[in-house]
């Protein structure tokens, strides 16, 4: 292992990590939003829109991100829709992630007893108030593990951004590999970089899940 090579290229990897993290987090944030909206459209059976949300979820969950990105980046400009690489990255990741987040939210909401929704209605809460104060807090507690798993999944998927010619971690490593030939060092640093990014996310996830478990809601189902 050539440590001086590694030391020399740490700044490159820092730059790549910044791109990976930045666009990964944009994608995660947009995915959470899109996922929540889609999930609520389906939960409250909003006519037409829930069908669109359902169709979108099926499309996004059953196609690879790589193909989605090529379509956005190399296909769409040919019919006049020109997007920057960064826009493609965020749109692609959101398209994929929104569907996965919607499914996570759905499983959380489904785990909330139907009678909880009715109890909220019975004290005269509006639909929005019912979601905010009664349904969502409980759904989030159940959905937390799946949501965190999706966050890790999406950050990993950012490795595909290299096909958009974005200098993310993957592309930094690939460029160094093809130019310098120090494959072992290059891949070693790549692994370490992803570990440094994903380990904290995983630790936070474990911590949050444990707290939620301790705050467990207990014996609601004694009936």
């Amino acid at each position: 292992m050539d440590w001086s090579f590694i030391g020399e290229h740490v700044p490159d990897y820092l730059g790549g990590a910044a791109v990976t993290l930045r666009f990964g987090l944009y994608g995660v944030a947009c995915s959470l939003l899109l996922g929540l909206v889609c999930c609520l459209l389906r939960y409250f059976r909003v006519p037409v829109l829930r069908r669109i949300a359902g169709g979108y979820i099926e499309l996004a969950r059953n196609t690879p991100l790589l193909v989605q990105l090529f379509f956005l980046y190399a296909g769409l400009p040919r019919v006049g829709v020109r997007l920057s690489a960064e826009a493609c990255a965020v749109i692609g990741l959101t398209f994929l992630g929104g569907a996965y987040m919607a499914e996570a939210f759905r499983s959380g909401l489904e785990a909330v007893d139907k009678s909880q929704r009715e109890a909220g209605e019975c004290i005269g809460l509006t639909r929005a108030q019912n979601i905010r104060y009664v349904l969502l807090p409980q759904a989030l507690a159940t959905a937390a593990p799946a949501l965190f798993a999706n966050v890790i999944f999406l950050i990993k998927e950012t490795s595909m951004f290299s096909v958009l010619a974005m200098m993310d971690l993957m592309n930094v490593a690939d460029t160094l590999r093809t130019s310098g030939g120090r494959t072992v060092e290059v891949l070693f640093m790549l692994i370490v970089a992803y570990l440094i990014i994903l380990l904290p996310v995983s630790l936070i996830a474990t911590w949050v899940e444990r707290r939620l478990r301790y705050a467990g809601f207990g014996d609601q189902h004694t009936v």
Binding site: M170, R177, Y194, S202
Partner: peptide
Amino acid sequence: VRFMPQLVLLYLVYFG
């Protein structure tokens, strides 16, 4: 497997 992007693992096997 959970932590490493599949693309990284693939590079590891193919190039590494």
